[in-house]
């Protein structure tokens, strides 16, 4: 009897603790616009890279100034060189054709009548069957599994298919709705995560990418979070092909935070937030970054 009482006592003491949030520190919470134009109120560099077809080549060639172009001179159409991203694109097309032999793969991804044009610009989106939000790479993983093929989120083949689908939306503006329902909630959570300090260095994404844009880390200038999603998945010299969520893993490791697996809900919320910050900016793949 006394032992049962003790268990109940513990439960009673424990419940308020379970509800109370752990102590967290946040950078000053900034307001963001869910559109790439919002950068005019953050770094003000947007006017320099607003049109990827008309970048200032003098600025692109100046190592002191080129960060102000948000590295868009490494995307097509400015960057016309052949790099690993082009080979990944070929691989992605090959894989897509194999998976979509009966048209079920494209239908699973949400393509109407098999039309792939503009599919990329609507992801991440709320998945009615799964009752949660999925990014394009996670949707590819799920739909490929239905076709009996393992394409893990973040793997080369998964990102290659994602890159192929992005290339079908080349030049089309990213357009996700974050004004209502679960997408709005994910956007709000993502914004908060962007400002949450974590890890052994106790840093948030915003510590650098909102509050210290243009300052240098190890002689490399940090840039604005606006307009970044448009060139993913991206060819990286070290990572071959990197999806946005693998980029989060790299960011976390570089800033001393234990990374999460791609597809985790926190990363998807961050993806929603950052994609909304690229709303209105044209998809430009295949791109490369060092």
């Amino acid at each position: 009897m006394r032992s049962l009482l003790f268990v109940l006592l513990c439960l009673g003491v424990a419940t308020p603790q379970a509800e109370s949030m752990p102590y967290r520190e946040y950078d000053a919470l900034e307001e963001y616009a869910p559109s790439v134009r919002g950068d005019m109120w953050l770094s003000g560099t947007y006017r320099l890279w607003a049109d990827p077809g008309r970048l200032d080549w003098r600025m692109a060639g100046n190592p002191e100034d080129n960060w102000k172009l948000n590295w868009k001179f490494m995307d097509p159409p400015f960057n016309q060189t052949v790099h690993g991203g082009h080979f990944a694109l070929d691989r992605g097309e090959e894989l897509f054709r194999a998976l979509n032999a009966k048209g079920r793969f494209a239908a699973c991804l949400g393509a109407r009548q098999g039309r792939l044009k503009g599919l990329r610009t609507g992801y991440p989106r709320y998945h009615a069957q799964l009752r949660r939000i999925v990014g394009l790479e996670e949707a590819i993983e799920l739909c490929a599994a239905r076709q009996g093929r393992e394409l893990q989120n973040g793997s080369y083949d998964n990102s290659a298919v994602s890159l192929f689908l992005a290339s079908k939306s080349q030049g089309m503006p990213i357009r996700i709705q974050v004004d209502k329902g679960p997408m709005q909630q994910a956007y709000a959570r993502g914004r908060k995560l962007f400002h949450m300090r974590t890890g052994r260095s106790n840093m948030a994404c915003s510590s650098c990418h909102t509050h210290r844009i243009g300052l240098k880390l190890r002689n490399v200038a940090v840039t604005t979070p606006y307009g970044d999603v448009a060139h993913f998945p991206v060819y990286r010299t070290r990572f071959q092909l990197q999806s946005l969520q693998l980029r989060f893993v790299e960011c976390n490791l570089d800033s001393g935070t234990q990374p999460l697996r791609p597809g985790s809900s926190a990363y998807t919320d961050l993806e929603v937030f950052l994609t909304a910050l690229s709303n209105g900016y044209p998809v430009s793949v295949p791109s490369e970054r060092h």
Partner: peptide
């Protein structure tokens, strides 16, 4: 993570430092 070209699997390798003791974004 280690991205392996032409593979549907994402490989993971041990990182040089252990970061698991501090809060994550999860």
């Amino acid at each position: 993570p280690q991205v392996v070209v032409h593979s549907g699997r994402l490989e993971w390798e041990p990182f040089s430092r252990d970061l698991s003791a501090w809060p994550t974004l999860s």
